[in-house]
Amino acid sequence: MTDQTNDGDWVLEKSGELKPGSSLPDSLNLDPDTHGPGDVPLGINQPVLITFNSFANGRGFSLARQLRERHGPSLRIVAQGHLLPDQARHAFQSGFDEILISDNALKAYGAHAWDTALQTAVGALYLGEVSGGGIWSRRHGHELT
């Protein structure tokens, strides 16, 4: 675990909006292969940055979900590293707030790939996110807003 800046050049928000990125100089950086939710103190004010070393390694999704469950909506959780555009859905539905995307990744996949992938991704799942929602809630009349 280190406190360091990241190399994100762009930020993808949950809405699908892609903005020029800003570094997170004060972030708490986590490697999901070695860190767990216990490494993030309760009440922390820093953003937490989780790095995906490989798109095939989904540990970061579970770590984000654990953090969201334990810290609630106030904790800012940011993803960076090797993520495919198609994994933006998984990231946001697992509890991430933002994804940092490098210039190289943006060029490799195409500038619109992230937004397109997010917009074409299946948004309504059966089980809701930590904040609520989901098909089951809608079916049984307990939709949270």
Binding site: A56, N57, G58, S62, R65, Q87, R89, H90, A91, Y126
Partner: peptide, 13 residues
């Protein structure tokens, strides 16, 4: 089936 379908946490096990 419904719980596991497109479960965001468990797509890259």
């Amino acid at each position: 089936r419904q719980w596991s379908t497109l479960h965001p946490e468990f797509a890259f096990l």
